[in-house]
């Protein structure tokens, strides 16, 4: 179970609850988003969506300090272009969650799909279990904005591809149905790790030799004290939200993947007088 108190603001917010499949008939995404906008206009600050089943674009481009709790499985592009709100998903997620997100906080108590956080510029995405391919592709950073993706389980190929800033952490844990947490026996990530990375860093909690998995422009580094200090609060927060004993994290080393250069492909091209 998620500790929602960790995430949601404690004061009593004006809350409303919606059944997204009234009489067993799921709402279309257009109608659902219309409802969400109407609810915000009516001054509500927190929304609980029940029976969500594959509706896409939930919370698209929403701004401000709004909170959404989703019970069910949201469809692709959850929180696309979002700028501020918090979303808790009690279930799994489909692809492209947090696509081009500017700011906000998405917490998934389950698995995530592919291409999570595509081109996100800010905000946080915490996924309790495993995620698919191309997670954190082309996430960026800008001034005070710094996107953070933490994955409790393992990731697929192309983790942190084209990464242009921010932070990705993969913990490699496995959550059994009875609530016990063990080390995941699967590999922490797939191949082409951080290929094309030119800023930011990927932290992987594993003893595996990742050398052969590195993509173009990515390089393994030892965890420096400075980085450890920087990431610890986020890992602590993740552990508290998902009830993971923090001591468990220290049982395996953290490896760091960073770019070789800020200009991985700079030398490929040349000008000339024709």
């Amino acid at each position: 179970m998620i500790k929602t108190t960790m995430i949601l603001s404690k004061e009593n917010k004006k809350t409303v609850e919606i059944d997204v499949a009234p009489n067993g008939k799921p709402l279309k995404y257009q109608d659902l988003n219309d409802k969400i906008h109407e609810i915000i206009q009516n001054g509500y600050e927190r929304l609980i969506l029940n029976n969500v089943c594959g509706q896409r674009f939930i919370a698209a481009s929403l701004q401000g300090d709004f909170e959404i709790i989703i019970n069910g499985i949201p469809g692709n592009d959850l929180g696309v272009f979002m700028d501020g709100p918090k979303i808790i998903v009690n279930g799994n997620c489909e692809d492209q969650m947090g696509n081009t997100m500017n700011d906000g906080f998405i917490i998934v108590d389950g698995d995530g799909g592919d291409v999570i956080g595509l081109s996100a510029r800010g905000g946080k995405i915490y996924v309790k279990k495993d995620v698919g391919y191309r997670v954190g592709i082309h996430i960026k950073e800008y001034e005070h904005q710094y996107p953070i993706i933490i994955i409790g389980g393992t990731a697929g190929d192309f983790l942190g591809e084209y990464m242009a800033g921010g932070l990705i952490i993969t913990l490699g844990l496995k959550f059994l149905p009875d609530g016990t947490i063990i080390e995941n026996s699967h590999s922490i990530c797939g191949g082409e790790l951080g290929t094309g990375i030119h800023r930011g860093k990927i932290i992987l909690r594993t003893e595996e030799n990742l050398e052969s998995k590195l993509g173009v422009g990515a390089k393994l580094f030892k965890l420096m004290e400075e980085t450890k200090k920087e990431i610890e609060p986020y890992i602590k927060e993740f552990c508290e939200i998902f009830n993971i004993p923090f001591d468990l994290i220290g049982k395996k080393p953290l490896q760091v993947v960073k770019p070789i250069s800020k200009r991985p492909f700079g030398g490929n091209y040349c000008g000339q007088y024709i």
Binding site: R121, I137, H138, K140, E141, Y142, E143, Q145, Y162, A164, G165, G196, H198, R199, K262, R263, P264, F265, G266
Partner: peptide, 12 residues
């Protein structure tokens, strides 16, 4: 572009 100064802007 909302990227740090001096950083490459790569469009995949």
């Amino acid at each position: 572009r909302m990227i740090p100064k001096g950083s490459d802007a790569l469009s995949p």
